[in-house]
Amino acid sequence: MNKIMYLEFERCIGCRACQAACRECGDHDAKERNYVEHVDFMESRQTFPMMCMQCKDPACARVCPANAIQITEEGVVLSASEEKCIGCRNCTFGCPFGIPKFDFEANKMYKCDMCYDRSKHDIAPMCASVCPSDAIRFIDFDEMQSLRRRRTQLNLVEGKKPTEQDKWKYVPEFFGVYSD
């Protein structure tokens, strides 16, 4: 089994069900770890969901002076371990995607862990389970690959060629690899 999280921003309807659901998950302490934001409400109602990509070599862990960010054997990047986190917030600045959240009260960083209690049993994380518009999905790796190929082809059909700064455009769906 080899499942991944798959996001499609344009499908987002801004309902924030994923955030409400995130609070429901075990060990999330009733705090959501994902984001739903408007691109620019004045211009459009386009919203987008955002959550951790579960990088293979996470920048957040690399900039942590306390070495507090651990990766499980499945590849899930966990919140800073509470005993080590010294509360410097380097992770929130190092993360290229702006994901880790910081709790000033308890002096610790917390972030998406793909609902570790669910995903380690191969059950979809709460956000992907409830997302009413399928903007967040928990699908097989192969399915994701074929969706990506089609998306890239569509972009190429439109006559857009990748440039140095376009790396994201052409591999638009990012994903946190989760393998069992």
């Binding site: 691109v39 290229p96 995607f97």
Partner: peptide
């Protein structure tokens, strides 16, 4: 950072 990423991705 989140917004920039999304805007890139949505062209």
């Amino acid at each position: 950072r989140r917004r920039m990423r999304v805007m890139k991705q949505l062209n």
